[in-house]
Design a protein around this nucleic acid. Structure first.
Length: 411
RNA sequence: GUGAGCGUAGCUCAAUCUGGCAGAGCGCCGGACUGUGGAUCCGGUUGUUGGGGGUUCAAUUCCCCUCGCUCACCCCA
C-alpha cells in the first residue's frame, strides 16, 4: 500500500469544517484590521531563507527540503515571512499608498521528526505589517489575535512578551551573556555548554538548568534607550487594551531576523503535548533591507493550524441536512432522478440510489448518510401523481402531490 | 539526528509474560420483515499476526535485522 510520506497527513472531509471555521475567522478578523491576503510560492530560492532566517539556525541547517533545479538551489518554504518580504520588494509594494498589511494561509515544510502538534507539512496562518515603527502596531497585533482566539472560543492560553533588542544593544548583551555563562559553565548541562557558542540566548530557556541560570543577565535589563522606550510603549498599549500578558524575559525566537518585540501565545491546557506554542511572532526591523529592499520595518506572526485545532474545544459542527430519493423499478428510478435534479435546483443536497436497489437497502443507505428526509417514488405513486415524503427523525410519512414538492421539508 | 513504547480482521483490542488449532466486540452482508432506516434476535464474512532471517518437533509468542506508527529530546507554529 502506498502511504502518505512521514509527517504528512490527509485532511479528511470529516475535519474540513474545523479548518474552514478557523480560516474563515482569520479572514474576517484580519480583514477587519485592513490586512489583505497574499499568496506566494511554496518553492523559493534557498538563499532567501538562509539570508533571512539565518544560516546557523536549525531550520536552515537541517530542516529544509532543498534540491537543485536548473543549477539553482531551491527550497520548500519552512515559514512565510521571507516569501512575503521578497514579494514586497519584488513588486515594490512598499511604494503603494495605504497600509502595507498582509495575511496568508498555507502549507509550510520542515523535515523534523514528527510528534504531537508537529508535522513535516503543516499549515500556518500569518500576518505581516510593514512600515510602521511605533509600538502601537505591536500591541494592535496582539489585540487582533485575542479577538481571533475569542471568535474561535479558545481560552486556555497566555500571552508572553519580550524584547530582543536591536543591532545596537543586542550584540553587547550577547557578549555579556556569554561571559556570564562561561563563569558558571561547570554547573550547566551538556546542551547548554554547546549552546553558549551556537545560540547563547537559548541557554536562558533550558529546562534542565533553571536554578543555575537565575543569576544570568536578562536582555530586558540591557536594552538601549530607544529599545526600552519601544518596549515600555508596547506594554503600555497592552495595558490600555486590557490584555493580560506575562513578561517572558527568557522568550527567544528561533529565527535570526527578529528585533525588539517578540511574543508568543502559549497553550496552558496541555492539549498540545510537549509543544505549547500556538503562535509566535515579533518585529523584524532590518529584514527588508537585508533582503535587498529599502529600510522598511516590519512585524508579523504565524500560528499553526494543526495546533490550533488541538487547542479547540467544544462540539463539532452540525452536519448539513441532506435528502435521499428512494425508488422502485426503473420507472420510479427515472422519476427519482428528475426529482433529485429539481431539489438540487433549490440548493438541496440530494442522493439517489442505484437503480433497482432494494427499497430496504435504500433506506439503510439513507440512514447511513444522515438523510433528514427520504422521498419515495414507485409505480403506485406515479399512477396517483404523488410522492411519499418521510421525515427520518420522527419517522412520520405523508403523501404529497408531485407538483407540491418544493424544498419544504424540515431542515 | 538521539531515545523509548507499540505494530494481530475494515476499526478497537485479546492471546505474547510461561512457545502448542489466531479470538472477541464493533462494522459489513443476509435473514426474521417480498414497498420503508435506526431497536432486537438469528446466521454469514473478515488475517502474509508490518517485512526478512534465526532458535525450535512447533513461533503472534523467544533472538537479530529492517520498515512503519506514536511519544519524548533537540528545535519550533
Amino acid at each position: 500500500m502506498i502511504k502518505a510520506i512521514k509527517g504528512m497527513k490527509d485532511i479528511l472531509p470529516e475535519e474540513i469544517p474545523q479548518w474552514r471555521r478557523i480560516e474563515q475567522a482569520a479572514r474576517d478578523v484580519f480583514e477587519s484590521y485592513l490586512y489583505r491576503e497574499i499568496r506566494t510560492p511554496v518553492l523559493e530560492p534557498t538563499e532567501l531563507f538562509s539570508r533571512s532566517i539565518g544560516n546557523a539556525t536549525d531550520i536552515v541547517e537541517k530542516e529544509m527540503y532543498t534540491f537543485e533545479d536548473s543549477h539553482q538551489s531551491v527550497s520548500m518554504r519552512p515559514e512565510n515571512t521571507a516569501g512575503v518580504v521578497r514579494a514586497l520588494i519584488e513588486a515594490r509594494l512598499y511604494e503603494a499608498r495605504g497600509p502595507q498589511r498582509y495575511y496568508y494561509v498555507g502549507p509550510m515544510f520542515r523535515r523534523e521528526r514528527p510528534q504531537k502538534g508537529r508535522f513535516r507539512q503543516f499549515h500556518q496562518i500569518g500576518i505581516e505589517a510593514f512600515g510602521d515603527p511605533g509600538p502601537y502596531v505591536d500591541a494592535e497585533i496582539i489585540q487582533m489575535t485575542c479577538r481571533f482566539f475569542r471568535e474561535l472560543g479558545i481560552h486556555g492560553y497566555e500571552v508572553r512578551v519580550n524584547s530582543l533588542g536591536c543591532h545596537t544593544c543586542r550584540p553587547a548583551y550577547v557578549e555579556k551573556l556569554k561571559m556570564a555563562i562561561y563563569l558558571i559553565e561547570g554547573s550547566l548541562c551538556e546542551d547548554c555548554r554547546r549552546r553558549r557558542e551556537t545560540n547563547p540566548l537559548r541557554v536562558l530557556d533550558c529546562k534542565n538548568c533553571q536554578e543555575q541560570l537565575s543569576g544570568l543577565p536578562l536582555i530586558t535589563e540591557n536594552l538601549c534607550l530607544p529599545c526600552l522606550e519601544h518596549f515600555d510603549g508596547f506594554r503600555a498599549h497592552l495595558q490600555q487594551f486590557s490584555i493580560p500578558y506575562v513578561l517572558a524575559p527568557r522568550l527567544v525566537r528561533g529565527l535570526d531576523y527578529y528585533t525588539r518585540t517578540a511574543f508568543e501565545f502559549a497553550s496552558v491546557s496541555g492539549a498540545l503535548g510537549s509543544q505549547n506554542s500556538l503562535l509566535g511572532g515579533g518585529r523584524y526591523d532590518g529584514l527588508v533591507k537585508n533582503l535587498g529592499g529599502p529600510e522598511v520595518v516590519g512585524i508579523g506572526f504565524a500560528l499553526g493550524i494543526e495546533r490550533l485545532i488541538l487547542a479547540l474545544t467544544g462540539p463539532p459542527a452540525e452536519p448539513t441536512p441532506v435528502a435521499y430519493v428512494a425508488h422502485l423499478e426503473m420507472e420510479g428510478f427515472r422519476k427519482a432522478v428528475e426529482l433529485a435534479e429539481k431539489l438540487r435546483d433549490q440548493g438541496v443536497a440530494v442522493a439517489v440510489a442505484n437503480p433497482l436497489k432494494q427499497l430496504k437497502a435504500q433506506f439503510k443507505e439513507a440512514d447511513r448518510i444522515g438523510a433528514t428526509t427520504v422521498y419515495v417514488i414507485g409505480p403506485d405513486e406515479i399512477r396517483d401523481g404523488v410522492v411519499k415524503v418521510k421525515d427520518m427523525t420522527t419517522g412520520e410519512q405523508r403523501v404529497v402531490p408531485e407538483n407540491d414538492i418544493v424544498p419544504s421539508f424540515s431542515e
